[in-house]
């Protein structure tokens, strides 16, 4: 029975991929590939936005998690599917540094951005027992005791690593970086006092900040946030940091480049509507995200800027494996 369904899907794919029928798109169910595993931030966003997008499209979207290779497995998979608009990629920021990190030759240039849904804002949080009351104090302390302060991180190219690299680009300092399996485990270790501070996405830290279990030293943004009015922006202590901003993780929906125009238009329309859904917006904002809901050229510009800033920062810190120049990534 399974083979019969697969065969059916195969023939349907063969028929529907003809350009003549693109006007009636979507004629059958779509597949949504989620870049990260079940329960991760990307997974939650994908599963929350999909029901309203399905309603707008009039066809179900069957979601599958294909994690692995820091997202490279999902981009490779969607890229290998026909460009018919029937396979969606629910992704995060990761592919934009795959080229310089030597992980994959595929990034979002190979995809059409249906919707860049939202971006997250990073904050620098510290253990409550640490003596610092501002990021400046932390940095000065780190300059006095090089390598003695412990930073929680999520590995190379993660939020903590990139923010810290940007900051040491502005003012040189050195800390011990201890990578954890994700932001959650990092914040857990921070509360146990096993690391001293950690730059982290606000969505992962918001509730712990609110409860006073960690203290927040700065928001990695040009202005203070409504949700954290008393926390200074990072540019207060380090004005030169402004050149990197706005910077933060993001979530988006993509299709392979070359999908029929009619399909792209239909998808953009459906996801625009879905990202505007009140319940969804509330959830995203509650999690510390800034809604973007942009597509097409506007989204491409955002993606290009993110890639340029991050790739060059990593390259200049010696953390990248290949130079951004090799891939014609312009210097920001």
């Amino acid at each position: 029975m399974i083979t019969r369904r697969l065969l059916g899907a195969f023939f349907a794919a063969a028929i529907a991929s003809g350009p003549a029928l693109a006007q009636n798109y979507p004629e059958r169910e779509l597949t949504g590939i989620i870049m990260w595993g079940a329960g991760g931030a990307t997974d939650v966003v994908a599963r929350a936005i999909t029901p309203s997008a399905e309603k707008a499209l009039g066809q179900p979207i069957v979601l599958q998690n294909r994690p692995g290779g820091v997202g490279a497995i999902s981009t490779a998979y969607v890229n290998s599917q026909p460009a018919d608009g029937y396979t969606l990629l629910y992704g995060a920021e990761n592919p934009q540094i795959h080229k310089v990190m030597g992980l994959s030759q595929i990034d979002y240039k190979d995809f059409f951005p249906v919707n860049v849904i939202a971006r997250g804002i990073a904050v620098v949080v510290a253990n409550n027992n640490t003596p610092w009351s501002s990021l400046k104090e932390l940095v000065e302390d780190a300059q006095k005791r090089p390598g003695a302060i412990k930073m929680g991180s999520t590995g190379p190219g993660g939020v903590a690593h990139v923010v810290n690299t940007m900051l040491s680009n502005v003012t040189p300092f050195r800390v011990a970086s201890i990578p954890f399996d994700g932001e959650g485990p990092g914040i857990t270790a921070l509360q146990g006092g096993h690391v001293d501070y950690m730059p982290v996405g606000l969505s992962a830290a918001a509730e712990h900040i609110k409860a006073g279990r960690v203290k927040v030293l700065a928001v990695v943004n040009a202005e203070s946030l409504e949700t954290l009015p008393n926390v200074p922006p990072i540019t207060r202590d380090f004005p030169q940091f402004a050149k990197f901003l706005p910077w933060g993780p993001f979530y988006g929906v993509f299709v392979k480049k070359g999908a029929p125009e009619a399909a792209k238009a239909k998808l953009v329309e459906a996801f625009k509507q879905a990202a505007g859904n009140e319940q969804f917006t509330k959830m995203m904002v509650d999690r510390g995200n800034v809604m973007m809901n942009i597509s097409g050229e506007e989204a491409d510009d955002f993606l290009a800027k993110y890639q340029a800033v991050t790739s060059w920062t990593l390259h200049e810190a010696g953390a990248a494996k290949k130079s951004p120049e090799e891939f014609q990534i312009p210097r920001p």
Partner: peptide, 25 residues
């Protein structure tokens, strides 16, 4: 504390967010 004790509770935390709750301390 809003900290998952294993893989399943990590997914449940995601579910709570979607339902408008804020898992955390």
């Amino acid at each position: 504390l809003g900290i998952p004790g294993d893989a399943v509770t990590a997914v449940i935390i995601g579910a709570l967010y979607i339902h408008g709750l804020k898992p955390g301390p």
